[in-house]
Every structure is written in C-alpha cells, then in structure tokens.
C-alpha cells in the first residue's frame, strides 16, 4: 500500500511539473504532430488515395497518434530524466525521503504512459473530425496500446540515459532511434514499399509492433490473432526487460 502510494507520489510530482510547463510542452509535442498530420493528410493524401487498403486519412491518423506519443515520451526519457538525475537532483531528493529506486522508476513509467496518451488523444480527436477514425471502442483500446508502447520506448531510452555522464551521449537517439521509426515503421508509408532488408530491420523497433496493433483498432479493421500475439508479446517482453535495466542503471547511478 505504502509502496504503491510512493509510486503514485512520483507520478503526481511529474504531473504537477508538466502542468506548470504545460504551454511550452504543448507546442512541442502536440501542435507539431498536428502540423505533420495536416501536411501529410492533405499532401500525401492527394498522391495516394489509399494506403494499405485504407483511405489515406484513416491510414495516417493512427500513425501520427503513435509517433506523437513516441516523441513526447522519448524526449522525457532522454533529456527529462537527465535533468532530474543530474541537473535538478530530483531523484536525490526522492531518495532522501522513504522512496526507493524501484518506486521512482515505476512512477516515471506511469507518467510516461500518461504522457504518451495525451498527444495521441489530441491527434486522434482532430483526426476524427476529418474522418480518420473508424471505431471509438477501437480508439480506447488503441490508447491502452499506446500507453504500453510509451512504457516500452521510455524504458528502452531510460535504461541507456540512466547510465550516461554527459548529456550529449544521448544525441544519437534522434537519428538512430526516433527518425528511423518515424520513417520506416509504417507511420505514413507502408513498410512494404521499402526494400526487404529495411522491412526486416523495422521489426526490431517498437513502433512497428505498436502500429500493427493500433492501425486496425482505430480504423476498425480486423486484427489477426497472429499479429496480436506477436506484437503484443514484443511490447510486453521488451518493456519488462528494459524496466529491469532502467532500475539497475538508476540504482548504480544514484547510489554507487
């Protein structure tokens, strides 16, 4: 009980800071994907009437939902966590209270899940207005998948970011981890349009699996049991693995 309360206290602290910084973060993580949605929806929508068997707007809305979530979570995992660990010593303050590293990490992850759902919901609402959403129930389930993907991406980055001593050591995240996912994992172009080796490589990234699940849900298409099983297990297993490594990384960085 006390353990869970501690986790929630960490999440609540982050939410309060988010609230205090809301306008700057809103512009970055919510307005930007809306601009991209607008540009792709109208621009590429003219070029491709359908993509992957869907009207283009229905194709791109789920893609933009998850990519908006990815960016919000990734920057917090990389730069936000470094700020809290090194510059503001927020974790030291937490550890001086009865909280432990595990609780701090779980509180971070819970916050990342909320952060992931927020821009995705806004993109979804705007997308729905332009006819990009096929099922409300599907959207709700998709948001849960987005939260899980948020946890997955967050822990993958945190497990590395918790171990670095200099902030610029994480700069490769953009070109090596985020941009490839944005371009090659099926956010706005079918993966099948790329060479085989690119498609194969795309399988290692979480966004591919997130999109496998989210797109059928939001556009109200059937989701094959095979895809469901593979992609969901990928997200769960990878999240569990990197959660463990994040806790280890933070423990080492904060108490040794």
């Amino acid at each position: 009980m006390l353990y869970l309360q501690g986790i929630l206290a960490v999440t609540k602290r982050h939410l309060l800071v988010w609230k205090a910084m809301f306008f700057s973060s809103f512009a970055l993580y919510t307005l930007e994907p809306l601009l991209v949605l607008f540009a792709f929806g109208f621009g590429l929508g003219q070029a491709f009437e359908t993509m992957g068997g869907l009207p283009y707007i229905q194709y791109v809305v789920p893609g933009m939902m998850i990519s908006a979530a990815m960016y919000a979570v990734a920057f917090d995992a990389a730069y936000g966590s470094f700020l809290r660990r090194v510059f503001q010593k927020t974790y030291d303050a937490m550890l001086a209270s009865p909280l432990n590293v595990q609780q701090i990490t779980f509180g971070e992850i819970l916050y990342a899940m909320i952060r992931a759902m927020f821009p995705a919901s806004i993109v979804c609402a705007v997308g729905a207005y332009f006819g990009g959403v096929g099922s409300i129930i599907g959207v709700l389930i998709a948001l849960a998948v987005i939260a899980l993907t948020g946890a997955c991406i967050f822990t993958m980055i945190l497990s590395y970011a918790s171990r670095i001593k200099l902030l610029n050591r994480i700069d490769f995240m953009m070109p090596m981890f985020l941009t490839p996912q944005f371009l090659f994992c099926g956010v706005f172009i079918e993966r099948s349009m790329f060479p085989d080796w690119v498609q194969a490589l795309a399988q290692i990234f979480p966004l591919t699996h997130a999109i496998n699940l989210i797109r059928p849900l939001v556009s109200n298409q059937s989701l094959s049991a095979d895809v469901l099983l593979t992609s969901l297990s990928y997200l769960i297993i990878v999240t569990a693995f990197f959660t463990f490594y994040s806790i280890r990384g933070l423990k080492k960085a904060l108490t040794e």
Partner: peptide, 25 residues
C-alpha cells in the same frame, strides 16, 4: 537538508512541500 538544494524550480514553495510530504505517504 542537502548541501546543494534540490527543490523543484518549476513548482511553488507550497507545491514543493506538498510533493515532498507525499513521498512520505
């Protein structure tokens, strides 16, 4: 009281104390 302050600069005084108290449950 740590040697280097680690208060939350973006929060108010009251919020800082509230957040810290909530860490203690």
């Amino acid at each position: 009281v740590p040697q280097d302050d680690n208060l939350d600069p973006d929060l108010t005084v009251e919020e800082n104390l509230y957040v810290f108290g909530s860490y203690y449950g």
